[in-house]
């Protein structure tokens, strides 16, 4: 029993990258997500993507202007969620 009582943390973000959530930012996102213990989920309306799966993320086909919700679920959710929001909110392609 991990026995912690924390709520998942959610943040809403609008995609501003002119190319949308395309292969490169999605790759950066998935790589980062793979390295954290939290579950990371991205929602586009009802559509749900596992943040650790590149297939799922680019499968959202989120164009510029799309509103996404990032959800982090785990002990350090509050501390790490900002990095994920930054990737989605970045106007250019992250490294």
């Amino acid at each position: 029993m991990t026995g912690t009582l924390h709520e998942p943390v959610r943040r809403t973000v609008v995609v501003v990258n002119p190319n949308g959530l395309h292969m490169r930012p999605a790759t950066t996102f998935a790589q980062l997500a793979a390295g954290v213990t939290c579950d990371i989920t991205v929602w586009l309306g009802e559509k749900r993507a596992n943040g650790k799966s590149l297939w799922d993320l680019i499968g959202l086909c989120a164009l510029r202007g799309t509103e996404l919700t990032v959800e982090a679920d785990g002990p350090d959710a509050e501390t790490i969620i900002g990095q994920f929001v930054d990737i989605l909110a970045s106007p250019g392609d992250p490294d």
Binding site: M23, R24, A26, T27, A30, Q31, N50, S53, L54, W55, D56
Partner: peptide
């Protein structure tokens, strides 16, 4: 790097 991620995807 993207292709490697796709190919190693657990789902």
């Amino acid at each position: 790097a993207s292709h490697a991620l796709l190919l190693s995807d657990q789902a």
